[in-house]
Design a protein around this nucleic acid. Structure first.
Lengths: 355, 355
DNA sequence: TTGTATGCGTTATCAT
DNA sequence: ATGATAACGCATACAA
C-alpha cells in the first residue's frame, strides 16, 4: 500500500519567506535589461565595462544566485555530466570518480553519480534517471551494458565513454586499456619466470566484463604456452580480502606436491587476501608461492614483501573521461578511443618457482 | 586571455534532428490534457484507471523521457541532494558517499558530488555551485566550514548535515560520533593496558576538525592520567601509508630505552604504514610496540597481526545523512543530532608493554 | 553594445 | 476526475 493517497505537499525550501532574488531583480537594481544582466553573467566580454560592473555590483548586493533549472530549460544545457559505476566501495572506482569530478569541475561541469551494483538492469535504470536529469555526457564502466542503454543515449544524442576498457573491437568510445592483453602480460611474466603450475582467483565475471577479460587473458597466455589451468585451480569470487583468503585455500587444496607455484588474482584485494592466507598456511611468498594482483592500490607497494601487480591509472582515466565528454559536448575535437598505459610493477611477491 | 571572444556555440544534444518528445505529445497521443498526463506521471492514484493506462501506453510508445529542468522550474523542487567531501580518494569517504547515494536513490533523489581537498574556501565554492544547481539538501564533512557557507544555506533554506562528527556543543545538525571521545577511549584502552610512553602520528589538523579532535582526545586522556606526549613524539602528516612509515621513524627517533611503547595513528592508513615500518625496523608488533588506528577499513582485520582500531560505520552514516536530509526536505520528523556507534575493535596489534 | 519579446517543458491553480 | 491556463526564471533570436 502507498503511504496514503492524500500525500502531503512538501514545503518549498526558502529562507524565512522572502522570495528568491532573480535575474530581473538584479537587472532592475542595475538599471539595465534582463538580457544585459544575463550577458554579464554568461559572456561578460560581450558587454560594456560600465554596465558590466553595475550588474556585478547589483548581483553582489542582492546576493543573487543563479537558478540552474531555469538556465537549463532556457538554454537546453545542464552543464552536468553523469557517471554510473558498479560501486564506490571499491577504491579503484572511487579514485576514478574523483578524477572525473575534479576535471569536470575545472571545466565548469558538475557530476551526478549513481551506482549499479554490477547489475546491467540497475545500471540502465540509473542511467535513465541521469538522462532525465539532463546530463550532457555519461561515463560508464566497461563495455557490457543493456542494449536499451546504448539506444537511449543514441536517440538522446548524449555522448558516453566506456572506461576501464579499450578492446580491439570497441565500437563505442572508450578510455582505458585492454584487460585481456594486460592479463596476458601479467601471466607471461610469470611464465617467463618459469612457472608452470598456476591458479587463478578471479572476480565475478557476471556483469563485469573487465573481470571476464582478465580471465580470458590469463587463459590465453597459458594456453599459448601449453600450460593448463586445471579445474580446481580456478575460482571466481567477489572482490574482497576475506574472499581472497578463502579463494587461496580453495585453489591450493590437494596434494602439496602438485600445488600451484603461482596464483593470479583478479585484483589487489584478492591478492592481499591470498598473501595473508599463504602466510597463515605457513607458505612463503614468493618462495613457495608467487602472487600477483591487479590495480596497484596504495597498499600494494607497502605490504611485505610488496605485491607484483598491474598498475591501473584510475585517476587519469577519470580525468581523460571528463575531457572526452566535455570536448564532445562542446564540439571540440576528440579521439574516439583513448588508451592509457597499464604497467607491470614487479615487487617482492613474485620469484621463479623453487627448484 | 580567454579562448577568443567569439566563442563557438555548442550544439544541442539531440539524436538525429528529431525534436524531443514532450509531455504534451504524450497527452495528445493519449487524447487527454497535459495536466492529466502530468498527474499520471506524478500522482497516478489521482487519476482514473482508464486514462492512466492510456497515458502510460502513449508514454511508452513515444519513448517519453521527463525533463528534470522543466520539472524543477515549475515545481521548484530538484529532487537532488549534494555532498561535498574532502576527497573520494580516502575509502572511508567513498563508502560514506556510497551509503548516501544509495539511500538517496531509494528515496527518489539523485546525488551531486563535489570535493574540497580539505580546504574551506574550495568547499564554499563547491557548495555554492551545488546550491545554484538547486540541491535541496547538503551533506558536509565535519563541522568546520566557511561562515558564509552556513549563511548561504540558511538564507536559501537548504537543510544540511555535518557528518563524521557529533560533538557536545554542536549547534548544527549532525550525524556522526564524538571524535574527541572516541580518541579518548582508544587512548584509555592503551593506558589500561599499562602503556606510559606514547607517540602519535596524527592527520593534518588544518581544515580537518576530525583530525584535530582526535588529537585533542588523545591528549586529554593522556593528561588525565598524568602521562605526557613529548614534543618529538607527535607528528602531523597527511593520511597515507608512506606517510605512516615516515611518521613512525620520526616519532621513534632517539634512545631506544625511552622509546614509546604505543603509537596512536590518526587513521588506519597511517597505522598500516607504522606497522610496516616497525617490521622493517625489526620491531615486533605488539611485542615491542603497540599500534592503533582509526576507521577500521577492510584490511585492518586481515593485516597480520590485525590492527586494533576504532570502527567507524561510514556507510551507515551516509545512509542516515540521506534519511535526515530527505526527511527534512519532505517535512517529516527528524532528529537534529544523530549519534552513531563507533566501537573499539581489539586485534593483535596491541598488547601490554613489555616488562 | 543594449533592449524586447518569446519560448523552454512542466506543474499548479482554479474551474468544471 | 479532468481540463484550461498561468506561472517558473532565464537565454536568445531579433530588432534597435
Amino acid at each position: 500500500m502507498e503511504p496514503k493517497s492524500t500525500r502531503k505537499r512538501f514545503h518549498v525550501a526558502q529562507g524565512a519567506g522572502e522570495k528568491q532574488v532573480k535575474l530581473s531583480d538584479v537587472a532592475a537594481l542595475a538599471g539595465v535589461s534582463p538580457a544585459t544582466a544575463s550577458r554579464v553573467l554568461n559572456r561578460p566580454e560581450k558587454v560594456g565595462r560600465e554596465m558590466r560592473e553595475r550588474v556585478q555590483a547589483a548581483a553582489a548586493t542582492l546576493g543573487y544566485v543563479r537558478d540552474a533549472a531555469a538556465r537549463a530549460l532556457a538554454s537546453r544545457r545542464s552543464r552536468t555530466i553523469g557517471a554510473v559505476v558498479p560501486t564506490l566501495d571499491n577504491p579503484i572506482f572511487a579514485t576514478g570518480v574523483q578524477g572525473l569530478e575534479s576535471r569536470a569541475n575545472e571545466r565548469g561541469y558538475s557530476l551526478v553519480v549513481a551506482s549499479s551494483d554490477y547489475r546491467v538492469d540497475k545500471e540502465l535504470r540509473q542511467a535513465t534517471m541521469l538522462l532525465e536529469r539532463g546530463i550532457e555526457g555519461l561515463m560508464l564502466m566497461g563495455t557490457e551494458h543493456h542494449p536499451s542503454l546504448y539506444a537511449l543515449m543514441k536517440t538522446r544524442g548524449v555522448p558516453h565513454v566506456n572506461s576501464w576498457v579499450n578492446e580491439g573491437d570497441a565500437e563505442h568510445p572508450c578510455i582505458g586499456f585492454d584487460n585481456v592483453e594486460a592479463a596476458t602480460r601479467l601471466t607471461n611474466y610469470l611464465l617467463d619466470l618459469g612457472h608452470r603450475r598456476f591458479a587463478m582467483i578471479a572476480g565475478v565475471a557476471k556483469g563485469n566484463d573487465r573481470a571476464a577479460a582478465r580471465v580470458e587473458g590469463v587463459r590465453a597466455a597459458l594456453t599459448a604456452d601449453g600450460v593448463a589451468l586445471e579445474e580446481g585451480r580456478f575460482i571466481e569470487i567477489p572482490y574482497g580480502v576475506r574472499e581472497g583468503r578463502d579463494g587461496l585455500r580453495a585453489v591450493l587444496a590437494g596434494d602439496p606436491a602438485t600445488r600451484p607455484t603461482a596464483v593470479i588474482c583478479g585484483n589487489d584485494l584478492l591478492a592481499f587476501g591470498a598473501m595473508f592466507e599463504a602466510a597463515a598456511m605457513g607458505l612463503d611468498v614468493p618462495g613457495d608461492l608467487s602472487v600477483v594482483g591487479f590495480d596497484d592500490t596504495e597498499l600494494s607497494s607497502h605490504i611485505p614483501p610488496g605485491l607484483t601487480t598491474m598498475h591501473v591509472p584510475s585517476v587519469e582515466m577519470g580525468k581523460l573521461a571528463a575531457d572526452y565528454l566535455v570536448n564532445r559536448i562542446e564540439d571540440q575535437p576528440v579521439r574516439h578511443r583513448t588508451r592509457v598505459e597499464v604497467r607491470l610493477v614487479v615487487r617482492g611477491s613474485t620469484a621463479p618457482p623453487r627448484g
